[in-house]
């Protein structure tokens, strides 16, 4: 068979379950009872006096709860329904989520009522792709009876789906650390931004270099930056999208534009970094910024600059 024929055969196999029973001669695990009603009302924060005292009724929206198998499982599930679910499991649709619930209440349920129910598979959808993953919607209709009399009907739709593969979070590139710049990264680890200073002529330099570009002397020590600065220049990166640079400032996995700034520190040197806490299109030359150390993953902390509101 070619691929289309295989797909058609599969679709027909699923469709064949429509109209077949999902549960036969089901019986509620417990009669309708005051303790379960109370637990429900406590969870929902429902203080309706109709649900307590003599003459109490069960909250109508509990209809399905009386039919649930609980940890003991569903003893009344029909073979057709078990088969359908197993078939979808085998197809990789191992996860389930409920999407629709439609209940009609014919008469109220009261403590002592013994609930009986039958359920039918109304429909099985075609293959659908959702945000959660790809799968099939299965709709069942359950008639709930007490003493043979219809108390309510309950239409329920679930999505049986194959969980979408979640990409691991994208990580920023690792810094290349060598003997010329190791002191800088040692400072970052301690949340200190260190500027190199030539011990011969006192010129500050950044980024870190092996020698002084003014006098050529190789000796140096460091000055800790105060953390104050201004945006000297900036660019906004639109393309290519790079989620690692924007995910912390945007919704999960969003790979939007981001601002890269050349920040002039109060000490006079300039460094390339990101401006955070300000939308990329609100970054401006001259904008005051303040140093902040941000953790981007379990091993990477970077100095970035928080925009300071005017």
């Amino acid at each position: 068979m070619d691929e289309v024929a295989v797909d058609d055969a599969w679709a027909a196999r699923l469709k064949a379950y429509e109209g077949r029973p999902a549960a036969v001669a089901g019986v509620g695990r417990d009669p309708v009872n005051a303790p379960m009603i109370r637990h429900w009302c406590e969870a929902m924060g429902d203080t309706n006096p109709a649900y307590t005292g003599p003459g109490a009724i069960a909250p109508p929206t509990m209809l399905q709860a009386w039919t649930m198998g609980g940890l003991g499982g569903h003893t009344s599930r029909a073979r057709a329904y078990e088969e359908l679910l197993a078939l979808l499991d085998e197809a990789g649709c191992t996860a389930v989520v409920a999407t629709d619930c439609e209940q009609e209440y014919v008469r109220p349920l009261r403590p002592g009522d013994e609930v009986a129910f039958d359920s039918v598979i109304e429909s099985v959808s075609e293959r659908k792709t959702t945000r959660l993953g790809t799968g099939y919607f299965v709709t069942t209709r359950t008639d709930v009876r007490v003493d043979g009399e219809l108390a309510g009907t309950h239409r329920f739709r679930i999505l049986k789906y194959a969980p979408a593969h979640r990409k691991p979070k994208e990580r920023r590139p690792r810094p290349v650390i060598n003997r010329d710049n190791a002191g800088f990264w040692d400072g970052v680890r301690e949340h200190r931004l260190l500027i190199q200073r030539c011990t011969a002529c006192a010129t500050l330099r950044f980024p870190w270099l092996p020698g002084c570009s003014t006098c050529g002397a190789p000796e140096w020590d460091t000055v800790e930056a105060s953390g104050e600065g201004t945006v000297f220049s900036y660019v906004v990166m639109h393309h290519p999208p790079f989620p690692a640079f924007t995910a912390s400032d945007h919704a999960a996995d969003a790979a939007g534009p981001y601002a890269v700034a050349l920040v002039e520190l109060a000490e006079g040197v300039r460094m390339v970094s990101n401006v955070v806490g300000v939308p990329y299109d609100k970054v401006r030359i001259g904008m005051p910024v303040r140093l902040e150390f941000r953790r981007y993953d379990e091993e990477l902390v970077l100095p970035v600059f928080q925009g300071v509101a005017a």
């Binding site: 429900w40 969870a43 929902m44 924060g45 929206t61 509990m62 399905q64 999407t99 619930c101």
Partner: peptide, 11 residues
């Protein structure tokens, strides 16, 4: 779960 949402809507 959907049953809780249903209960909250009823309430």
């Amino acid at each position: 779960n959907i049953l809780t949402t249903n209960g909250l809507v009823g309430r």
